[in-house]
Design a protein around this nucleic acid. Structure first.
Length: 710
RNA sequence: GCGCCCAUAGCUCAGUGGUAGAGCGUUCGAUUCACAUUCGAAAGGCUGCAGGUUCGAUCCCUGCUGGGCGCACCA
């Protein structure tokens, strides 16, 4: 054996050997595995095809690989399906930046051309992502790899839409959406960030009232003034009263609305509403069937209703409008320390402009109820447990889900929209020619194709089904429901609920029995890694420096699910030393190894040490079965280093020093070999490379360690 | 405002109803030995604060203080 373990040479060699042996594919496992009736399945959360893996992926790959390798060695038909995510909005933004650099813009391109370009770009980059997954030692079945824009995936996602449309679970509706004026698309709530801001709160005279607003630029068409029904200050007015008001662009007639959503203690207790650009206002408008009018266009500029301010950006218009109101004597006061929360685009940080738009929505209530019941019945186990509470809390407070996106890089919504009445219809076969709804009233509604694409989570929510070939695929029959969904705890809202819902809705069964949520990997200071902060550490570079095994150990030892962890280089170095230790243990045991014809005479010490190994294995197995990777890995680590190396080997040195092949020497040697074998097996899921390499150097080993019996 | 989590060694974090552990760091010693090092030893903790349950609480409960995160809002 080489005096030093060189991971740079060994790792690629070993991974290649695993791939060519075919054991990542459960169908190609040796015979005794085929007899094992139990499956173990994990569907990999597909990494973005466009990017390299980050530290969070490294943790995910490590955790999932440990689970899969453990079960494979136990004799399960272990299936881990890799995937690649087209990552809709994310990727389109990356590509738009590229276009920007080249002096182009997506708004000057034909949608299908843009789509083709992004596809080529994505498929080209996908190789790098896959290489990263391999370098982390992931024992996933590449022959089953799925891309989220594979033809069958696209077709099935569209079929789901049709089914939901037929079942009345999706509807076309005018609703407030989160509109990003930069990206020219609506965003779901999880794609926006709430940022606390200090702004000015302006108080204006509005007829007999004083109203407060942070957004004077939206107020041109405000013609409803709202107050709480029980507010003593305003008891002189009744719901529906008409009043004459001198307003920004002259006198208008306003209507009094009384509604309990108003907080009498905020501002003056009276406000005017702008239903097109505010969620609450929109809801009021719906409730009382009020007129709604768009004030700000899709690019964030004022519309002609603003008269002389038309075509001005809202940020520029604000102070000018305040100035005008001040000159008209309508400005009462300004509070410049008003703290409130503003929604921003999670990608470009642009302030979200609430807009009313015709979009497709998923009716969440009945689906959420399905999910709640299933989880309450204990059909899905959360690790750590408290995430069940978070899941339920979110599911109980969910609102309808806007699934329309105005970007090309995604799965097209197979629908037709009526030009006349604005209603929409699912249309998979491109068969609809005229509006059904208008047809009922004897009119002809011309239809146009919906050019929008699905929110990425609409398709990724179906991923466990799609990756297994739902509904007709053999894998779906054999491997659904999967055992574990392992992903970051930040996806407890974004992804997990949608997968549960689609699983229950489409397959009538949970998509997975266990949800394992790992923490987020931060930098050494515990700060979130981000490109803008420049503190991103590549797991691939660290693995290159210290070995993948060392990186993997550092990510699981002392780390608990659900808790964020810092990526500490010192810690990785510590486990690099451990892999060196393992290598040297093997060197010591194997280089002194001599074939012996003498039958060994085992001592009490030997028996005690064999028993110690068995006991350790039992403990580790129990931990692994409970998905406690921290305890499992810590236990092995201490056993191998501080029991096997420090105590047992030291104690056996005199017995091995015998020059003759005595029965005692044979016993000592056999015992050490047995403990080495057992240790390598236990370590293999955690440190697959160094253990497999040592295993190949052991005398009389026919199989790869990856398929050795646990 | 609502919800969730955390508080343990210098740092980063585990853990358990029976007066606490790891990695890194620190100190001392050993090392021609399988060891890009390793081995042996040591120092270091009123387990955030105050109550309660218990024979016994770091662990379970309540409150408080201090942090983190998520959600939702009021113009």
């Amino acid at each position: 054996m080489d005096p030093r373990y060189d991971h740079k040479i060994v790792e690629p060699k070993i991974y290649k050997a695993w791939e060519s042996s075919g054991f990542f594919n459960p169908d190609r496992l040796p015979t005794h595995y085929q007899l094992q009736p139990k499956n173990f399945t994990i569907v990999m959360p597909p990494p973005n095809a466009n990017g390299r893996l980050h530290a969070g992926h490294a943790l995910a790959m490590t955790v999932e690989d440990i689970m899969v390798r453990f079960r494979r060695m136990q004799g399960y038909k272990a299936l881990w399906i890799p995937g690649a995510d087209h990552a809709g909005f994310e990727t389109q933004i990356v590509y738009e930046k590229k276009l920007e650099k080249e002096g182009r813009s997506r708004f000057q391109m034909k949608p299908d051309e843009l789509f083709k370009e992004i596809m080529a770009f994505t498929l080209e980059n996908k190789k790098h992502m896959e290489a990263d997954v391999r370098s982390l030692g992931a024992s996933c079945d590449w022959s089953r790899e799925k891309f989220t824009l594979d033809t069958d995936v696209v077709k099935e996602v569209q079929r789901t839409f049709k089914k939901m449309f037929d079942d009345g679970l999706v509807y076309r509706g005018k609703r407030i959406v989160n509109w990003c004026i930069k990206h020219q698309t609506s965003l779901s709530d999880v794609e926006t960030e709430n940022v606390e801001e200090i702004s000015r709160l302006y108080y204006f005279k509005y007829g007999p009232f004083t109203i407060a607003t942070a957004r004077p630029e939206t107020k041109f068409a405000d013609k409803y003034v709202v107050m709480h029904p029980d507010d003593e200050k305003y008891k002189a007015w009744n719901h529906g009263d008409k009043i004459e008001v001198e307003w920004i662009n002259g006198p208008i007639q306003a209507t009094v609305i009384k509604d309990p959503v108003i907080d009498p203690a905020f501002g003056t207790g009276a406000m005017t509403i702008t239903p097109w650009h505010s969620q609450v206002d929109f809801e009021l408008a719906e409730k009382y069937k009020l007129d709604i009018e768009q004030i700000i266009d899709w690019r964030g500029k004022l519309l002609p209703v603003a008269n002389e301010f038309a075509d001005t950006k809202i940020s520029e218009a604000r102070e000018k409008i305040v100035e005008k109101l001040k000159n008209k004597g309508l400005l009462v006061k300004v509070d410049d320390k008003y703290s409130h929360v503003v929604k921003r685009c999670y990608k470009c940080n642009t302030a979200i402009e609430p807009q009313v738009k015709d979009q497709w929505f998923v009716k969440m209530k009945p689906l959420a109820e399905l999910a709640i019941k299933t989880v309450e019945d204990g059909k899905i186990k959360f690790i750590p447990e408290n995430y069940e509470k978070i899941f339920l809390y979110w599911m109980r407070n969910t609102t309808d889900w806007n699934i329309s996106r105005q970007i090309v890089w995604g799965i097209k919504i197979p629908a037709k929209i009526c030009v006349k009445c604005g209603d929409g219809f699912a249309d998979l076969e491109n068969a609809l020619r005229a509006c059904v709804k208008c047809g009922l009233t004897g009119q002809v509604g011309e239809l146009k194709e919906d050019t929008d694409t699905f929110d990425t989570w609409f398709s990724s929510g179906q991923w466990p089904l799609l990756a297994l070939g739902y509904p007709a695929g053999a894998d779906f029959k054999n491997f659904y429901p999967t055992n574990v969904m392992e992903t970051g705890h930040d996806l407890i809202f974004k992804w997990i609920p949608r997968m549960v819902i689609f699983g229950l809705y489409l397959a009538k069964q949970v998509p997975f029995h266990t949800v394992y949520l790992h923490g987020l990997v931060n930098d050494a200071q515990g700060k979130k890694m981000s490109k803008s902060k420049g503190n991103v550490v590549s797991p691939i570079e660290l693995a290159d420096k210290y070995g993948t095994d060392a990186l993997r150990m550092s990510l699981v030892v002392g780390n608990t699910p659900g808790t964020d962890l810092p990526l500490l280089e010192d810690k990785i170095r510590g486990y690099r030393n451990f892999s060196t230790k393992v290598w040297n243990i093997a060197r010591f045991v194997l280089t002194g190894y001599r074939e012996s014809s003498v039958s060994p005479a085992f001592t009490d010490e030997d028996k005690a040490n064999d028993a110690g190994l068995a006991e350790t294995k039992k403990i580790v197995t129990d931990y692994l079965e409970a998905y406690d990777l921290n305890q499992a890995s810590s236990t092995i680590y201490h056993y191998v280093w501080h029991t096997f190396a420090d105590k047992i080997i030291e104690a056996y040195k005199p017995r091995l020093a015998a020059t003759e092949n005595t029965a005692d020497r044979a016993a000592a040697q056999a015992t050490l070999m047995n403990i080495l074998r057992g240790s390598l097996k236990m370590l293999h899921p955690f440190m697959p490379f160094v253990t497999e390499e040592i295993w190949s150097l052991m005398p009389g080993m026919k199989n790869q360690l990856i398929i050795e019996e646990w």
